[in-house]
Computed example of a mutant assay.
Amino acid sequence: MPPKEETQSLTQDLLRGAHSPDSANRIFSDKIQHRPLFLKPSSPPPTTARDARRRARDEKKKRTKALKPKPLSARERRRRQFYHIPKEGQKYSVFAPLHKLWVGYMREILGTELYNGGQGAAAKLSAADFHGAEVEVSRSRCPSRVGVRGIVIKDSRFVFEIITAQNQVKTLPKEGTMFRVHVPAPDAAPDHRPFCCEIHGDQFQHRSSDRANKKFKNHFLKKL
């Protein structure tokens, strides 16, 4: 460390280079000489600082985790009966508005393919959500299910849960079943026939959220 006299001389030389001699002497005596120099406490060692930062990050993660609720498990959702429809709500008229919304949704995503069909319509149907769709069992390995028709109130991985016009909730397995779906033409085009298609339940054994990103491939299907 240089001596105090050398430091003062260097400071005065720097001030004289920017100010007149009288101004340099005045600034040095008023603002620099005999003025206390406040120093902050010395920094902690690198390892201590690193540990402090790590503890701060861990505390922040804990606070964030405490504020964000943990998602419920499937068992907890079943215990709380999230997917249970109460007896007073098992009415066809309750879900009729949902079916109207689904019809508008299908008209929007199909567009012009609502009238001519094709592979484009098939791809859109395979990725669509069928909650609110009115489906009818056209073919099934179980003959007693043929002709059952209703609005889909739950589209799970392996079954369609529907409610019929007789206010009955029925569970229809997708395996070994074909479903017929109708999408009526809009009121502005009364001359067009309703869009009708059949979906293979064997290829629909996925949740509606999983079907959106799934690429379907051609498979051999046994006769029903």
Rank of each mutant, 00 (worst) to 15 (best):
S23M: 10
R53N: 01
G118L: 00
R57D: 09
A188V: 10
D51K: 11
A212N: 12
D155C: 04
F216N: 04
R180Q: 15
K60P: 00
V103F: 05
K91H: 01
I32C: 02
L98G: 07
D187F: 03
V146C: 05
A56M: 02
P44G: 06
E108T: 14
E161V: 14
Q90K: 04
K215L: 12
S23T: 13
T177F: 14
D210H: 12
L72N: 03
P186R: 04
A74K: 11
A128F: 07
V169P: 01
L98K: 15
R79F: 14
V183Y: 05
Q168N: 06
N218S: 05
D30P: 01
V135S: 07
S208I: 08
Q205D: 08
D191N: 09
L221T: 07
V94Q: 01
F38E: 07
P3G: 11
M1K: 09
T47W: 11
H34P: 01
L98M: 14
K65V: 09
W102D: 03
R55A: 08
E175Q: 13
E134R: 13
T11S: 06
D22R: 05
E76Q: 08
A56T: 01
S29K: 09
P46N: 05
Q81T: 06
T7I: 15
V137E: 01
I109D: 06
A133M: 12
M1A: 13
V137W: 02
P190V: 04
A128R: 07
P2S: 15
I32M: 02
L125G: 11
F82P: 00
R16M: 03
I109Y: 10
S156V: 15
A18L: 11
A189R: 15
S156T: 14
R63E: 11
F160W: 07
R145Q: 14
K70M: 04
M1T: 15
L14T: 12
A127M: 13
P3Q: 13
D129P: 01
P71L: 00
R75G: 01
N213A: 15
D51F: 11
A52R: 11
K217W: 06
G176L: 06
E5R: 10
G17P: 04
N218K: 13
A52Q: 14
R141M: 12
R78A: 07
P69I: 00
G201S: 05
R35W: 02
E6F: 11
D191Y: 11
P184G: 09
R139T: 10
K4V: 03
L15D: 03
S138K: 12
R149F: 04
G147C: 07
A96C: 08
K124S: 04
V181T: 10
G147E: 09
D202S: 09
R50I: 09
F158A: 02
P69C: 00
D51P: 00
I199F: 15
R55K: 07
A188R: 03
D30C: 02
C197S: 05
A96F: 05
P41E: 14
R139V: 08
R57S: 07
R35Y: 01
K174A: 02
Y115H: 05
K170C: 04
R78Y: 10
E198Q: 10
L10T: 12
R145S: 10
V103C: 04
R79A: 14
L101P: 05
S20G: 10
P143T: 15
R107E: 09
T112M: 00
K124W: 03
E113H: 05
E6Y: 10
S93C: 02
R75S: 08
